[in-house]
Every structure is written in structure tokens, then in C-alpha cells.
Simulated scan of single mutants.
Amino acid sequence: MTKQLDEKEIISIFSQALGIADLDDVAAIDGSRNLVFKADMLVASTDVPPQMRPWQVARKSIVSCASDLAAKGARPVAAMISLGLPAGITRTYVEELARGFQIASREFGVKIVGGDTNAARDLVIDCSMIGMMTMTVNDKMPKRSGAKPGDAVVASGKFGYPASGLAVLLRGARAQGAFRAAAVDSALEPKPRQAFGTALARYFSSSIDSSDGLAASLYEIAIQSGVDIKVDYDAARADGVQEFAGANNLDAHELVFHGGEEYEIVATMPKSLLPRAKAAAKKAGCDLHVIGCVIKGTGKVTAGERPLENRGYLHFS
């Protein structure tokens, strides 16, 4: 039986064939100091919970690109949208998709300038986005490969809400009050951390968007930078996740580290820059959370002394 390739293996095949040595979610455009490019694809059967309304689906397809740009300190400028639409889709559904694109355009400051449509067996939305860099270290986009021993690991938020929200929506997990509202909202209407990225990217030695999961994102930085990362579970865990997991016989570590669908920014920076970064975050109205540290190593990630699996959300897996 032929082994099914996962997303990382497929990307590796194409990157080797095309000579792409520096893998990242955002690509700088040759000859330009500040233009960057990003593309992302949403497929309804793998990326959309049944409770998500059409306008939220369209908005999420823009969120994915805006979040990756934000992690590099870039703001969206223009996007093109390609739609694969299944047979029998109604006019009302298409109008709701259009409304979602309109909402995202205004919310994230990106002008949608065109695109393409075609027939497909599933709803598919592909977003291609051009972004403009803000001030960064030496006018260069922070990569995944720049983390150094002694750096602090920082994040724009804490982790576990989207996975908890999906457990409520898809598996009937029990939650109440503010926690339920926050968890479900984070799953249906994720918020890219644009202000955090544009205000703080100048301090980053490396950065990544965490939509594939916190553990997988930290591994990307650790492996590409040739370092180890120690993350503080208590500092990374969102309020209420431990209690929610216990009440529903779920693994809180799984929700925090491997759930995915989070659009937080995870970055490293020299510890000496933390005071300035915290001041910049406060001025921009953002939270900055120190969730770990970078040490010498060969690409391992641990929560305290507990090794983490290099696992998150992977298409085709």
C-alpha cells in the first residue's frame, strides 16, 4: 500500500525541485526591499466547521494570509481571490461569500482587486496577497531561521482556545459563560495579530504564524535555526483551558500545543530587547507574552523537561 504523503513532504518535494532553499510562509520579492507575497488555500471539507457561516468562511480565507504577513511585520495591500464552487451552490451562499470578502477587506485594510472562478467538487478559496513591510531588523523580513541561544520566545497571545472551541462545536464538549464564548469565537472568527506584528517585528530574530499549532510552529523555528526551544506550559496556556479539559476528559497539553487553528504570532528576540518590545506592545495596545527561551541544540522542543511531538494540523495526514 502506497504511503499517503503529508503536507510537509509535498512541500519538500516541490521546494527541492524548484530550488527554494529558505522555506517560509511569506516570500520577499526580489529587487524590492519592502514588498512581500503570500498565498493560502482554504478547502471547505478540511478547514471549515459546519457551524461556520458563509461570510465567516470567506473572511477566514483572508485571515490566513493576513496573519502570515503580520508575523513578518507586513501589512496587506492587495489580494486576488480564486474560487472553486461546487454544483448547486445558491445565489444566497455566493452573496454571503462576497459579504465576507467585503468585511475582511475593510477589517484588514486589503483591497481585493480581482480573481477567478471555476467549478469544483468542494468549496475552495485561494487567496494571493501582496504585502508591504513595516520597519524590521536591518530592513529585512524576519525568517524562521534566525533564533539564537539566549533569545526569549514571545507570543501575541496564549494557546488552547480554538482547539477548545472546535471540541465544543464538533464533539459536543461542555463549556459555559465567557470561556465558551471566547473559545467558539476564536474558532469561527479568528483574529490575526496585525498590530502586534507591525509594531514588534523590528525586534524579532525569527517569527512564524501559529495556525498549524504551537508545537509545530516552535519546531519550525528550532529546526531551521539549529537550536532547541524550552516553552513554559503555564505561560503558554490560555485561561480556563486546563479546567475545560478536565471537565471534558480531554488532554490540555493536546489543546495547547497541537490543536492548531490559532492565528497568534510566535517569535524570538534577544532578551535585551524585551523592555523596548514590551513598551512598543503597550503603545500599540497589544499583549506580549514571554512563553519560553532558546538554548543551544539541534532542533528539539520541550515543555519544561517534557519533549513535545513535532505535530500539529497537517493537510493530507
Rank of each mutant, 00 (worst) to 15 (best):
P307K: 01
D40I: 02
M133V: 00
V137L: 15
K271P: 03
R202K: 05
V77L: 07
A216L: 12
K230D: 09
F37Q: 10
R306W: 09
Y93H: 15
V168H: 14
M141H: 10
E95R: 10
P50S: 12
N118E: 15
N34A: 08
M52C: 05
G114K: 13
K191R: 09
M1C: 02
E254K: 12
L35V: 00
D22K: 04
I89H: 07
A28Y: 01
M141E: 14
Q51F: 01
G160F: 01
L83D: 04
R276E: 09
G297L: 03
I229T: 01
S145E: 02
A281V: 01
A17T: 11
F101T: 04
R121E: 15
F159P: 15
I20R: 07
L214P: 10
Y233W: 08
D151P: 00
D116A: 15
V168L: 04
E243L: 09
G165E: 07
D30A: 06
I112Y: 10
D47P: 06
R174L: 13
K148C: 02
V301L: 04
G84T: 04
I89R: 08
M269C: 03
M132V: 06
S12W: 04
F37W: 09
F108W: 08
G84Q: 12
R306D: 00
L274N: 00
L123P: 07
D30R: 05
M141Y: 03
A183R: 09
C65V: 04
T198I: 15
V227H: 00
R193A: 07
F196T: 05
Q51C: 06
K148M: 05
L250Q: 14
A104D: 08
P275I: 03
P54C: 12
D116R: 07
G304M: 00
K111T: 10
L18K: 13
A279P: 02
R180H: 10
M135P: 11
A74S: 02
K60N: 13
G226Q: 00
G115T: 01
S164G: 05
F14R: 11
C127V: 10
L166K: 08
E220H: 15
G88K: 07
S12N: 12
V184F: 00
I295M: 00
V94Y: 13
V77D: 06
R33K: 09
S61I: 12
E243Q: 10
A181D: 11
L188M: 10
T136A: 07
L188H: 04
T302W: 10
K283D: 14
L200A: 00
G157H: 05
K158W: 14
R121Y: 11
N118V: 11
F14I: 12
D212R: 12
M141F: 03
P270Q: 08
Q51G: 07
A167H: 02
G240P: 05
S207V: 04
G246C: 02
V290F: 01
N310Y: 13
M80R: 08
L69M: 07
Q102K: 15
A147I: 00
T117F: 14
Q224N: 06
A58D: 02
E305C: 08
K283T: 14
I125H: 11
M269P: 09
H315P: 03
V294I: 05
K148N: 11
V113C: 10
E107F: 11
A182E: 15
E220M: 09
I125D: 11
A236L: 11
P76Q: 12
P307R: 12
M52P: 09
E220S: 14
I11V: 15
K296E: 02
Q51T: 02
R144I: 09
V124R: 15
R91N: 08
